[in-house]
């Protein structure tokens, strides 16, 4: 991995994997800066929508964030404690998206 890229582990679970080719775990590489700013979680969400998402984007993204009802963990911590979309990604970060909208 070159020094100008971030290697991230991304996981989809709780049924979200169905939108991502039925595959749960991905390793993705993003530039350290996006639109002249340090790459953050919002950039990752939009990148995932444009690059990995296979179907029904409205079930993953709403405006520039995840659809309400999708939980996000940054390195095993609720993203609400990490600044949500503004969280600046670091090399090696693990981001997990969990749908709460499936089944009971």
């Amino acid at each position: 991995m070159s020094s100008d890229a971030l290697a991230l582990k991304v996981e989809f679970t709780g049924g979200l994997e169905l939108l991502f080719d039925n595959k749960k775990k991905y390793t993705v590489s993003l530039p350290r800066t996006t639109d002249d700013a340090p790459t953050n979680l919002t950039h990752l969400i939009l990148w995932l929508k444009d690059n990995l998402l296979k179907e029904r984007p409205e079930l993953f993204v709403e405006e520039r964030t995840v659809r309400p009802g999708i939980l996000v963990l940054v390195n095993e911590t609720d993203w609400e404690l990490e600044g949500e979309g503004d969280y600046q990604l670091k090399d090696g970060d693990e981001i997990i998206f969990i749908s709460t909208l499936h089944g009971g």
Partner: peptide, 19 residues
């Protein structure tokens, strides 16, 4: 629901989640 899902996640409980 958020807490139930987080609980299941952190306890690594085995559940099924397909529509």
């Amino acid at each position: 629901e958020k807490e139930i899902v987080m609980y299941a996640y952190f306890k690594k409980l085995d559940y099924f989640s397909t529509e």
